[in-house]
Design a protein around this nucleic acid. Structure first.
Lengths: 226, 226
DNA sequence: ACCTGAACACCGTTCAAGT
DNA sequence: ACCTGAACACCGTTCAAGT
């Protein structure tokens, strides 16, 4: 919108800051080399001095998601609470840049902070008696669940806030227009499906759900069902 | 690759078939109006007679994921097995077109088959005693978990098979090059994190995990932890 | 070391025009 | 009803050239 013809000189960090700001405001699709250049008052090709390619820029944006995480609540806390704390931290971090969600997963094993939180989680589970296979599985899915929770938070879509509100109302209209004899449950729970009045309860419940599954799979030994 | 200058006349279905084929072979990014037109031996603008926009085409591709699903194992089966069957069906469907995974979530409440499986799941959970809020929550996350499981299946990335193999080997090299004193667990479980020798076990375990979480949240009444 | 200009090979989409 | 041609406003990226 406002072409911030900032006097601040161009740098990798300045580009990253602007990219995240654009993503937050207008969605990841709005993050464009040419757009960023315009915002920064510079020619598109100038960015290529500080960044190898757009893909590398997206990677760097993803890495920012893992910056400044604190998830270690101490070795004396129960292991399931420690696991829950990891997921809580991830969720809170991802919620700061919901437009960048899709960048999170591919960077967890690529950037130092991602490796650190993964190592922490692997150790936590391994020491609890999970097999290497189960541990790797649970650790990766703890992260993925965090991503999923944020991206699936009812009322949160992709695109600008206005677009989100518009598509939300559109979906509600579509659901309430369904024939009641065929979709009674969809109609009953339309609001619950589409929005979320208590986000804290939402995250608490679903993180608890994951942790409960992990707990169950530990006590029963192998696969928790079937 | 082979520009299939098919003599079959242009139609919405022909476009969709080609789009899915291209996505499966080269990833969703390769699905392009112009590329499809070339494959179909026609001018790009010809597609616009059969399809309103590229977005509508992507929506239609997503709808295909929900076609021909059978998940009802009968009302006499235990509810947790029925829930597991729903997730199994979704997983199997999504695995047929892994490149289209990101299209799945946004169409679940938009196409008839998506509505049907959602209604089925809502009813299943509601009759079990979950609150509307919990039911809506669990139903949507059952789907999302299915998407997550497929997209997170170790060894499965986005892009062409060659690209996947290349990035896989690259990641393994990166992990095994880590300092052992700092990341012992990452090094121990590098293979488990990156690939998956028994896919059936992988899906069974993780679907069971979700179902176990749901079971736990039902028996304990409200939120399963904290 | 850092930025620009011109150019290339792509996109999705509109709109008037053909048959 | 169905398709084409030309055009518009975008992309990411390369490469030689400027300072």
């Amino acid at each position: 919108m406002a072409r911030t013809a900032t006097k601040t000189e161009l740098s990798r960090d300045a580009i990253l800051d602007r990219a995240l700001a654009v993503a937050d405001a207008e969605g990841l699709d709005a993050v464009t080399i040419r757009r960023l250049a315009q915002d920064l008052g510079v020619t598109p090709m100038a960015l290529y001095w500080h960044v190898r390619s757009k893909d590398e820029l997206l990677d760097a944006m993803g890495d920012r998601l893992y910056a400044d995480l604190s998830y270690d609540i101490g070795p004396d806390a129960p292991w399931d609470e420690r696991l829950g704390a990891v997921m809580r931290t991830l969720v809170d971090a991802l919620r700061r840049h919901p437009a960048c969600l899709e960048l999170a997963y591919r960077r967890i094993l690529a950037c130092p902070e991602g490796l650190a939180i993964t190592e922490y989680t692997l150790r936590l589970l391994r020491e609890q008696g999970f097999t290497p296979r189960q541990t790797a599985n649970l650790a990766m899915h703890a992260l993925q669940s965090a991503v999923t929770l944020v991206s699936g938070e009812p009322g949160t879509g992709q695109g600008s806030p206005e677009e989100q509100a518009a598509t939300l109302e559109q979906k509600r209209a579509a659901l309430t227009a369904l024939p009641d004899h065929q979709y009674p449950y969809l109609r009953e729970m339309a609001d619950d499906l589409l929005q979320c009045d208590d986000v804290d309860e939402y995250y608490d419940f679903n993180i608890g759900l994951f942790v409960a599954g992990a707990r169950a799979s530990l006590s029963t030994g192998v696969t928790p069902a079937r």
